[in-house]
Design a protein around this nucleic acid. Structure first.
Length: 464
RNA sequence: GUCCCCAUCGUCUAGAGGCCUAGGACACCUCCCUUUCACGGAGGCGACCGGGGUUCGAAUCCCCGUGGGGACGCCA
């Protein structure tokens, strides 16, 4: 039988980093086994689901390149299927109507909490042989509950966490359909996983506690139980639970912040999974290597520094034309208009080694297309009186120099020698005057790209 | 409160009883390269939560603590 996995987000917000990793692992597991990866949108919470969130999830998946083989399926479009199953359960007695009001249930929960007990439904409307049910109240629309087994244990061999057993006594009769008739999460998941032929459920470990309920439901439906793999959660950089207050949580935020999808993918793959000492690999390689037994069962803390390191690696490897296209947009967004000259790809090639993000890269080469803001402290330190005459001489010489890095280098050397200076004595002020600051790649390479006219213009403007 | 899960350098991890003097990566520090800053190269610092077992032998297996996390909705 072919392996089938699924990613089943609820469209109540953007695709966050934890969800992206879950999707990645589900995707990779399916690919590894030449199976199918299904995308399912769990939108039964009509109050909180939005079309914008659906789009955000789709966008995030697309950016990462995690394409699904089937779907997206929308649960709200599968209501008929759920209804059918619920009716059959009502008929065969594995589900029943419950007329307890919300107020009643709230009071019950409070009382149980106060008595230091695990809050759970008391089974008031649960039919049993020889039990007389209360009179049906006229003013209450009932919900439908699953008749969960009272005794015994539910157990499964979790592919990440090992064997987990939970006593049925810990479970209660969960609501599978609301008063308005819409089915609830645990029920839809079960019907969908069954009807969509999902063989491996790979999801966040906040679902561990839902698993026994789902297994009981599946059993009641005479369905085969899929294999479960529960992934531990991802913690923020500070070790705290990921939340909106913890910076970039949306995957698309990483795009905006200048991260390459291959870097994010590579980083996420190594968060909670390993393949010996391998640190750098692409999506295809990951899919070939991926296995569930090398997943760490413990929570992993996000580390932006390592992501940046990977991002720098992929920036160094990227195709220059691809980077150029991206950088044009980023520069435009910060009001910098990229012109034909200086050559953008040359500028990028010169700076990519030192950029951790595309935003840094864009910022670092902006001075090629607009006058830089001069760092006053750097100017004061390097553009000193003792070198101004040498700099003027150099400017004159440069006006007659062939515009190649080699020739420029030779010209600087000539003035350096004539004035018995050291190379940096001239390189530093040139840096400040041309780029605005004291740090840059080789100054001759910078000048070669900046162009003769612009170089002379900037020097003269600051030297007179 | 009840149930469930987790526990190796600061962080991500290797490790399936002897290969461990606990390996790699990020970060940090030092040196080299050098035209400044990066990149790159070479080193360095740095961990098995505690206590009991089991075993000839335990980071690895078991138990108990401790610490962290999750779940307990007509949310997903």
């Amino acid at each position: 039988m072919s392996i089938r996995t699924r990613f089943a987000p609820s469209p109540t917000g953007f695709l966050h980093i934890g969800g992206a990793r879950t999707a990645l692992f589900s995707y990779a597991f399916a690919k590894k086994h030449a199976g199918e990866f299904v995308l399912r949108i769990e939108d039964t919470d009509v109050e909180r689901s939005t079309p914008e969130a659906v789009q955000a999830i789709l966008d995030g998946m697309a950016w990462l390149g995690l394409t699904h083989d089937e779907g997206p399926f929308y649960q709200m479009q599968r209501l008929a299927s759920y209804k059918k199953v619920i009716n059959s359960m009502l008929e065969n007695g594995t589900a029943y109507y419950c007329y307890s009001s919300r107020e009643e249930l709230d009071a019950l929960r409070e009382a149980q909490m106060a008595a230091k007990q695990k809050p759970r439904y008391d089974g008031k409307w649960r039919p049993e042989v020889g039990k007389t049910l209360p009179a049906i109240p006229v003013d209450i629309t009932p919900v439908i509950r699953f008749k969960n087994p009272l005794r015994g244990v539910v157990a499964w061999d979790d592919l990440v966490k090992g064997r987990i057993e939970i006593a049925n006594a810990e479970l209660d009769d969960l609501i599978i359909a609301r008063a308005d008739g819409t089915p609830t999460y645990n029920f839809c998941v079960v019907v969908d996983d069954f009807e969509m032929g999902i063989t491996h459920v790979i999801r966040g470990d906040d679902h561990v506690n839902n698993t026994p309920r789902q297994i009981n439901l599946l059993t009641a439906l005479n369905a085969t139980i899929p294999q479960y793999a529960h992934l531990s959660m991802i913690l923020g950089d500070d070790g705290q639970k990921l939340s909106k207050r913890h910076g970039a949580v949306s995957v698309m935020q990483y795009h905006e912040d200048g991260y390459l999808p291959e870097a994010v993918l590579n980083y996420l793959a190594r968060l909670g999974w390993s393949h010996g000492d391998a640190e750098i690999f692409n999506l295809q390689q990951f899919c070939e290597w991926f296995d569930l037994n090398h997943i760490t069962p413990s929570a992993a803390q996000f580390n932006t520094d390592k992501l940046k390191w990977l991002n720098n690696h992929y920036i160094k490897l990227a195709d220059l034309s691809v980077l150029a296209k991206d950088i044009v947009t980023r520069l435009a967004n910060s009001g910098v208009n990229v012109t034909d000259q200086p050559n953008l790809q040359d500028a990028i090639a010169l700076y990519r080694d030192r950029a951790n993000t595309l935003n840094e890269l864009a910022a670092s080469i902006a001075y090629f297309y607009q006058l830089p803001v001069i760092d006053d402290a750097a100017k004061e330190k390097h553009v000193t009186h003792e070198v101004t005459s040498a700099l003027n001489d150099l400017t004159d010489l440069l006006a007659k120099t062939d515009w190649t890095a080699e020739a420029i280098h030779a010209a600087i050397n000539q003035i350096v020698t004539a004035n018995t200076l050291k190379f940096p004595k001239l390189a530093m002020p040139l840096r400040v005057m041309l780029t605005g600051g004291a740090q840059s790649p080789s100054i001759d390479a910078v000048m070669a790209i900046l162009g003769q006219t612009e170089t002379l213009k900037r020097l003269k403007a600051l030297l007179n």
